[in-house]
Design a protein around this nucleic acid. Structure first.
Lengths: 174, 174
DNA sequence: TACACTTCTCACACCGGCGTAATTTCGTCG
DNA sequence: CGACGAAATTACGCCGGTGTGAGAAGTGTA
């Protein structure tokens, strides 16, 4: 049964509900991870769906747009060869500091500390006194990729989300 | 501070040999890993002692100074949260390209590709078009730390090693 | 030869990751 | 209203990676 996109038909009334969020399956698809990973991360408290958590089997998780962003960051980190354990540490810190300016910031992991950095110069600066490894993730790309994937898979949904947010006419890269 | 190991003072009567290399135990101590790790890495072909491999039990592994450097890089990457598997990939590439200019280069891991980069500008450049995460490791620091640890634990040995190598005049302090 | 030291061989622990099957809920149809 | 089937989540448990520990087996040297 495909009732996938019938709610899109009535684009106008939807403004009432601020988008119910993304189901587990959709989320996994958009972010580009397996459902099992999503499940595992939720149940091990790496990242849980902020709109609706699962309670008892059969319930439905609901992920917010922000969740998608975070999930994508996690995937990027993982893809780049970083251990899940380290990712957890990063997010312990990051969650408080990840503001709205997702598009202009670079996430830098230096040793066991994470920093959000705006300019490239700051990074070179860090490099100078850097003891160990610097892991740098430009967050702008993350948002772009998530957005692109949403319109690709579920056109129409993105509008409902980004409606509230300041539309970035220009993405000033670093 | 200047001159970690300036022109060899030639105070060394030291054993006259061109240095036979470092034993497994010493190596582990210097690099800051457990002997079991060193053993594991050797036996799983991550890095094997280039002066003398182990053949049958009872033989002795002998690690070169270069090996120490590589080992330290590995440890740094591990400490920064990178999976051993990724480290293996990096070294598959890196081994051919890690020249003598260890002190001036930054190792950059971008996705599944590794690059050696000289200037900070190059890094910003990468950042611009960078899709994913950049892992940056300044190799200068690696050499410094290894050297320092050697003189700390086995004073006298460093001279014998660095004798052959071009001694960089400046050493970044800290 | 005796001795200290090193490597090898296993067996095993721990964790992340994920496949599979059972269980529960949701929406809908009769 | 009640039941049914699809969809989603949870429970169970296996697998592979990364070591570790203990002790057997060699080696080089005095």
């Amino acid at each position: 049964m495909f009732a996938v996109a019938d709610e899109i038909a009535e684009t106008s009334d939807v403004e009432a509900l601020p988008h119910a969020g993304f189901s587990g399956k959709k989320t996994a698809e958009i972010v580009g991870i397996t459902y099992r990973q999503l499940d595992y991360w939720a149940r091990t408290d790496l990242i849980s769906p902020s709109i609706a958590k699962a309670v008892g089997s059969g319930s439905r998780r609901q992920y917010s747009y922000r969740d998608l962003l975070e999930l994508k960051v996690i995937k990027q980190l993982l893809d780049s060869g970083i251990r899940l354990e380290s990712v957890r540490e990063v997010f312990t810190y990051l969650r408080d500091n990840l503001g709205e300016d997702v598009t202009t910031v670079n996430l830098v992991i230096s040793g066991n500390r994470s920093v959000l950095v705006r300019s490239g110069e700051e990074i070179i600066d860090l490099l100078g006194k850097g003891q160990g490894v610097l892991n740098i993730l430009p967050l702008a790309g993350v948002k772009e990729e998530v957005d692109a994937r949403i319109v690709e898979l579920f056109p129409g949904e993105l509008d409902a989300i980004t409606a509230g947010e300041p539309t970035p006419g220009s993405a000033a890269a670093q």
